[in-house]
Amino acid sequence: MATERIIIAVLYVLLAPFVIGLLDGFDRKISARMQGRRGPSVLQPFFDLKKLFEKEFLTANKAQLFMIRSYLVFIVLSGVLFFGGFDILLVVFSLSTAAMFLILASTSTHSPYSAQGTHRELVQIMSCEPMELLVAVGFYLAIGTFNVNEIIKTSISPIAYLPGFFVGFVFILTIKFRKSPFDIATSHHAHQEVIKGVTSEMVGKEYGMVTLAEWYENAILLGIVGLFFLNSNPVSIVCAIIAILVVWFLEILIDNTSARVKWQLMLKLAWGVTIVAAGMNLLLLEIIRG
């Protein structure tokens, strides 16, 4: 069992960038088709990433590179904890630590665009954090453990107890994936009023590492989506993969059909959904258990 967990964690480190990079490529292709364009090759994200590592490295502050390396390391660590089957609460905390390094990196230069982007990034973190923590709590209340390794061994998929938590989590995924209408801190698309926000001052390999870290993080988030559907029956793995693909497609659809909102509305919406969906679910769980 222990070796199995180690193998999955190692596979995560090796394969996550390829899988998420490819999903990203299909994302751009599907988005282009939705807009009536041909779109780039599905391998485009890999070309972009390789190019970033080949560009000349200019930086206003050497400390930035260290912060970004730490950001990447902590994201990968969170993923290893998650896919290795450790405590999901630990994963959430480790992700927050990683986010702190991104903030430190973007504030280490004096660009006004970075500063504005950082402010918005903090608001985004504030919008998502309650729901992320509640998801961990939800798994504990439903299954009786924080350990991912034990959560996947239940007889009934956690989604049966946690539909509200699932809705809340999918909602904040739009913020986490930096998709419209919540792509306010930085965006994958051009022409944003804060240029590239948080990543404005990150050049060449720095931006490459941030992209890579985002891919690793997205793998964890999609993994949590899958965790809602897993149980001791191996067939549930298929359900989990289908659920992940459906959620992923939904995000693309939302991205292409909505316009960016202001941060005030984002915060209200995210907390509103968290309180209503996850709160109601929490209450019902308590009543059933009590």
């Binding site: 282009a32 364009r37 041909r38 779109g39 190019k51 051009a190 240029i195 590239k196 931006y207």
Partner: peptide
């Protein structure tokens, strides 16, 4: 725009000189 679609060559219109080629 969809008619000419330069993104098919991998071109992204970025607003940031530090990310531009």
């Amino acid at each position: 725009t969809p008619v000419y679609d330069v993104e098919r060559f991998g071109v992204i219109n970025t607003g940031n000189p530090m990310h531009a080629d």
